[in-house]
């Protein structure tokens, strides 16, 4: 077992990332069209939900006296205020009762302790319909909705395992069939199964072994391809898996991510993304575009860095699931 000592440089990634996020609160603000019929949910509710989800995890894994904890809580307060204490989510639920995204955003905030009873009551009524339960979504997304339902007190025992076997990860796909979309699907399956890294025991043992075996080549190739966003998600998965296996921190990968950051701590989606605005350059992207090309990967870097640096010392939970190939000696 490698204790999470000497992960200060990795933790710094989270500190810098959330500091950048804090300066970009306006990018996460819902705006006037949050409830509009033609509002762009992918650039309004989605970033806000992701901010809440990551900050909930950061707050969970840091002590109350930790400045990082304080920043995450402050950002969560901001996110909750943006929803008007959940009231905008309740109104959104009335406007689009069969949409799953209000529930998913609400669940992210609820995981940080914010509740709006009227929203939950309304969600429960809709969730009792066959139509809601049979909403056609890909299995990975469906797992996320099931996790969100759980958070809101809607329980469907036995559904998640059935859904899991239909995912790329749960079906133990040949690891060399990995591509970008499979990567994003598998990271989210892990996030849903482990409640965004809070409960590493949510991963079945066969998935722990599978992920421990194959994360290194996936991470290696995503980093080589400059896919910083997906690399961050894979590093988060690696940190979750390491809680079960005790595998060492992939320091080379973290060095690459650190080097990919912009001067203010933000991480581009990929290495082809535009550099920060320079007043002398007429071709610079506008501020909104820059935000969209950085906010998600920056949040994921913070998420992964906190999961990595907050790893508990001592023997991993579920010892024995791994190390059948231990001690091969080839560095990661």
């Amino acid at each position: 077992m490698t204790a999470p000592d000497d992960t200060g440089d990795i933790r710094q990634v989270a500190e810098d990332a959330l500091a950048w996020v804090d300066t970009r609160r306006a990018g996460f603000a819902l705006g006037e069209d949050a409830l509009a019929v033609d509002g762009e949910v992918d650039s309004s509710w989605k970033p806000l939900g992701e901010l809440a989800q990551v900050c909930a995890t950061v707050a969970h894994h840091t002590a109350s006296f930790d400045p990082l904890h304080a920043r995450a809580r402050a950002l969560l307060d901001f996110a909750w205020q943006e929803t008007d204490g959940g009231e905008l989510l309740r109104r959104l639920q009335r406007l689009e009762p069969f949409a799953t995204y209000p529930l998913e955003v609400y669940a992210a905030l609820a995981s940080a302790g914010f509740r709006h009873p009227a929203f939950e009551e309304a969600a429960a009524v809709v969730a009792r319909t066959r139509g809601w339960r049979l909403t056609e979504q890909d299995p990975t997304r469906r797992l996320g909705v099931l996790r969100a339902e759980e958070r809101c007190g809607i329980h469907r025992p036995g559904q998640a395992p059935h859904m899991l076997t239909r995912t790329w990860l749960g079906g133990l796909s040949e690891p060399w069939t990995f591509e970008r979309d499979a990567g994003y699907a598998l990271t989210h399956v892990v996030f849903h199964l482990t409640d965004w890294g809070r409960d590493a025991d949510g991963l079945p043992p066969d998935l722990v072994t599978y992920l421990a075996d194959w994360l290194p080549p996936w991470l290696d190739t995503c980093l080589e391809a400059g896919m910083w966003d997906l690399s961050g998600e894979l590093l988060a998965v690696a940190a979750i898996v390491a809680r079960r296996t005790g595998d060492p921190v992939p320091r080379d990968a973290w060095r690459t991510i650190r080097a990919a950051r912009r001067p203010s701590g933000e991480v581009p989606l990929q290495d082809r993304d535009p550099a920060p605005a320079d007043p002398v350059d007429a071709e610079v992207p506008d501020d909104g575009r820059y935000f969209l090309h950085h906010y998600h990967s920056t949040l994921m870097a913070a998420f992964a860095a906190v999961l990595t640096s907050a790893r508990p010392a001592g023997p991993p939970a579920g010892t024995g699931a791994r190390h059948r190939h231990g001690g091969q000696g080839a560095p990661a």
Partner: peptide, 17 residues
């Protein structure tokens, strides 16, 4: 129409080159 992923892969795609 709409209906892209939430809490999942980012939507913006970089320009070529």
């Amino acid at each position: 129409g709409a209906g892209k992923l939430l809490l999942s892969p980012p939507t913006p795609r970089p320009k070529k080159g």
